[in-house]
Amino acid sequence: MMFAHVTHDQLARDVTAAALAALGIVQLLSPGCFESIRMYFRGAWAGLSNEQSERLKSVIEARTRAEGARGSARHAGLFTIAMGLFGLWPAIPYVMPYAASCLGMAYATWMAYRQFRRATELRFAPLVRRTPLEALPPVAIVSAALCLIGTAAFASIPQFRIAAAVVVVSMIVLVAIAWRIAVAPAVLFGTDPQVEYAVDKRVRFCRATGLVALACAPPTVFALLAWAQLPSPSGLLWLMMLLVIAGFIATRVVSLNPLREGIALA
């Protein structure tokens, strides 16, 4: 009964602000927890010999050192906390600060890549043709497109127009950053090119698909909260909400799938 006097909108706003503040504090205190590449190799060690494990460990450590983007992650943390506070302001749609904080996390990921690209003068290049679809599979792109279409449909309702537009824009920017990562050069130092290339492929895939999944998160939150506020939603809107949720789940599954997979080294 304690929250009986709190409106649905106010409750959603408070919960969003608290969640963003908590997320920002985690980013500040442990900047490596979101963009560290170690988590992409949880399942990679099975089946590797001691010598291969040592090589993989050493390449992951060298790359983590070279990326050194903890400053960007801390900036993103501060920004997320600021967005949490900003979200308490009743004049703005509460999904907007969440969408903006997702952009902050994407910024930290992109800065890690930029830092890494500047880390070496002498670069090795694999003589293998890559396509962006290896890092961003069509199923992730199609799922994100479904999510986008579903969210855009909510713009037809006047009270959600601004929030839907903000979420759509944030989504497009996040997917664009994911695409840039998918087409970014492979940076190999040449110490152990074979392992470096395998690590680069895994990191590229996890980051690109992870950002697409992140891009689908604000639309899902937005669609669920907007749905809860509608007195009698139409059948079409029901379908659109299902599209958004399906898109989010599909992108999440695609992005998490390789984390459990082993890695093949000669």
Partner: peptide, 11 residues
Amino acid sequence: MSASYLVVDES
């Protein structure tokens, strides 16, 4: 598949 690698030495 094992790949070959190229390197360019600017010096």
